[in-house]
């Protein structure tokens, strides 16, 4: 178990470097640069800018410099937001994204798990059909359509909630619900499928045969096994959550990391792009590792090599 964790942790570093290299290559392969705009710069100024950012060096020197900086955890300064380091920008904007991301996923878990479990227990009931159709609807409505529709109904028609205002619970409700919808739908479907399979398995029959009451069978035995597919969805969900927060931040004008990332891509702000990509890749890989470790707790039949 410990060696498994250590091995997986060590793999994360080269993988993150591969991602950074890939992104760097993409940004560099494209024609143009962050300072090329509508107007052509005078040659002398261009030469000065190139010198300042080391762009006059051959590409392998630049790559080496970039890599050695990143390995030391120094992503440099943003080239667009003068005088601000990438680390500063990330720590300033991360809390917004993290708040809606975490709350959104928790809400999705709450709705998805309860709806999925209940649908599996009452299989083929009207609740089952209703909630699963609703889940399919949740999978099919793009979040940038759902978000504005919620704003339309709850802000412009009913005047219940603010359309976009950070701070306070009222301003969080709509963004979090928008973000949670699609994951709640996924989790509900996965939970239902997993629970249906588990409820038919031998160890549940054994538990019932021992004379355990239905509550213990459900919560102590069945739910543990039924949660495995939900857990394996957590890794992809986190990656998709990133895309979701980009949309939600744009729709509700939240100054989160997603918004900053899109800005940096449009600005060709290379240090900021690389910094955010590296940070988010490592975040996702660490979460994937945590998920893999959690399997063992949920399903004792899983062994680590």
């Amino acid at each position: 178990m410990l060696s498994f964790i250590i091995r997986r942790t060590l793999i994360i570093i080269p993988m993150a470097l591969i991602v950074v290299t890939l992104t760097w290559g993409l940004v560099r392969l494209a024609p143009g640069n962050f300072y090329t705009g509508e107007k052509k710069l005078p040659a002398a100024i261009e030469a000065n800018i190139k010198k300042k950012y080391g762009l006059d060096q051959p590409w392998y020197t630049q790559y080496g410099m970039m890599m050695s900086n990143i390995i030391r955890g120094d992503f440099g300064d943003s080239v667009k937001y003068q005088g601000q380091s990438v680390n500063e920008i990330i720590t300033r904007h991360l809390p917004y994204s993290a708040t809606i991301g975490i709350l959104g996923y928790l809400l999705a878990l709450l709705i998805g798990l309860s709806a999925g479990t209940f649908a599996a227990l009452k299989q083929n009931s009207s609740f089952d059909y209703g909630s699963m159709s609703l889940a399919m609807l949740g999978l099919s409505v793009p979040n940038f359509v759902l978000g504005p529709l919620l704003v339309l109904v709850f802000s412009f028609w009913l005047y219940w909630l603010p359309p976009a205002r950070w701070g306070g619970i009222a301003g969080l409700i709509l963004p979090v619900c928008t973000l949670a919808a699609i994951y709640a739908a996924y989790i509900a479907r996965l939970t239902r499928a997993g629970m249906l399979e588990v409820l038919r398995s031998d160890y549940i029959r054994t538990a019932r045969a021992k004379g355990l009451d239905e509550k213990t069978v459900l919560f102590r035995h069945a739910l543990r096994g039924g949660l495995v597919p939900v857990l394996s969805f957590t890794g992809p969900a986190l990656a998709a959550l990133l895309a979701g927060t980009v949309v939600v931040e744009k729709v509700f004008a939240i100054p989160g990391l997603g918004n900053i990332f899109i800005q940096s891509v449009f600005n060709r702000d290379e240090p900021l792009i690389l910094g955010i990509v590296a940070f988010l890749s490592i975040l996702i890989m660490v979460f994937n590792l945590i998920v893999d470790v959690c399997y063992g707790f949920l399903d004792p039949r899983i062994r680590y090599e």
Partner: peptide
Amino acid sequence: DIFYSIPYILIVIVLLAVFGGPS
């Protein structure tokens, strides 16, 4: 496996932004 753990949406955004439009 390696590609799986890459947040591909970020890469696609970068790809389309740098290769889209005139370039």
